[in-house]
């Protein structure tokens, strides 16, 4: 049972229109593998018949399922490590200094998949920010409703929990429930999850101090990358920070960002770097501190306020 080129073209076009995800020719195997279970559940007539059904007026709901099935939701805790080391060593101290009067930090995990990124941030905030009396709000969004539901639920299998989450943090923030691990109420209360398409105009949102837009631009074409980066920039405080994935950059796409290297990482900021209003935010870019065992550098490493 294989996919005709017309069917592939229809699905590629649908997914591009709805989610801006680009499926180049050559990705037929991917489309086929992801559509197969949906086609089977629909009936015995095969994958091309299913694609024909999608195009009929009755195929509306099924089209949304197809878009969701073609998202790639690969993720892990502390993904790539370094962004989270820099978050703790440089970004959080700076944000604490800048938000000393309103004592609130707003964060957006903008393609959150099943929530590991949002809860990783929540763990670090619970360690370094919340105990100082700051309020932290994390908005986690994704185009896939199933992923948003999973983020809201905050339950992970043994195999999922093992990917990148240090054991000390696992037992601190999760409770074993049957064969799964449930995130604590403390972390869950920091995270709000909602469906959001990055390729469409953004709804009304808070102004974010911190945006994680990681491993999602890679699926878009250049013009979409540019327009997404433009919209995200407008949703941010000029003094905020944007984190991108390891293979993503603003360079050559949207030159209005200010780029600051920290170690091997580049921080993107909407406005020009200014010296902190108060306190001792790091003045010059420096290499991130060495990794520490608990996954969290001691809070005393850098005096923020």
């Amino acid at each position: 049972m294989s996919l005709s080129s017309q069917s592939f073209a229809y699905v590629a076009d649908l997914v591009r229109r709805e989610a801006a995800i680009v499926l180049e020719p050559g990705k037929e195997y991917l489309v086929e593998a992801r559509l197969q279970p949906l086609a089977r559940a629909h009936g015995p007539a095969g994958i091309d018949a299913y694609v024909a059904f999608l195009q009929s007026p009755g195929g509306y709901g099924a089209r949304a399922e197809v878009v969701e099935a073609l998202t790639t939701n690969e993720t892990s805790w502390f993904r790539d490590r370094e962004p989270f080391d820099v978050l703790v060593s440089h970004v959080i101290p700076d944000l604490l200094a800048r938000t000393a009067t309103r004592r609130k930090i707003t964060v957006w995990s903008a393609a959150c998949s099943s929530g590991q990124e949002a809860y990783t941030i929540a763990m670090l905030m619970a360690e370094h920010v919340v105990p100082r009396g700051w309020q932290v709000e994390i908005l986690a969004t994704d185009i896939a409703p199933g992923m948003v539901a999973r983020t809201r639920e905050g339950r992970y299998s043994q195999l999922e929990i093992g990917r990148g989450l240090p054991a000390p943090l696992m037992v601190k923030h999760f409770q074993r429930v049957g064969t799964q691990w449930q995130v604590s109420d403390q972390l869950r209360s920091m995270v709000r999850a909602q469906v959001l398409n990055l390729a469409a105009p953004l709804p009304l949102m808070p102004v974010f101090d911190l945006v994680f837009l990681r491993n999602v631009l890679i699926y878009f074409d250049q013009p979409t990358k540019r327009s997404v980066l433009g919209r995200v920039r407008k949703a941010m405080s000029p003094e905020g920070y944007l984190f991108l994935g390891g293979a993503e950059t603003t360079l050559g796409i949207d030159e209005s960002w200010h780029r600051t290297p920290v170690g091997r990482l580049t921080l993107n900021r909407p406005g020009p770097p200014a010296t902190a209003a108060t306190g001792a935010a790091p003045a010059a870019p420096a290499a991130p501190p060495p990794r520490t065992f608990s996954g969290v550098s001691p809070a005393t490493r850098q005096k923020a306020i």
């Binding site: 892990s76 502390f78 490590r81 043994q158 195999l159 093992g162 990917r163 990148g164 240090p166 054991a167 000390p168 696992m170 037992v171 060495p290 990794r291 065992f293 996954g295």
Partner: peptide
Amino acid sequence: IVRALAAGAHEYLIKPFSAEAFVDKLDYLG
């Protein structure tokens, strides 16, 4: 897990685990 960490283990990996999870933990431990 809490007992083993309290006794001085640095990390804890539950069988079954994926090869990626094992490498992730080593990477994390440096």
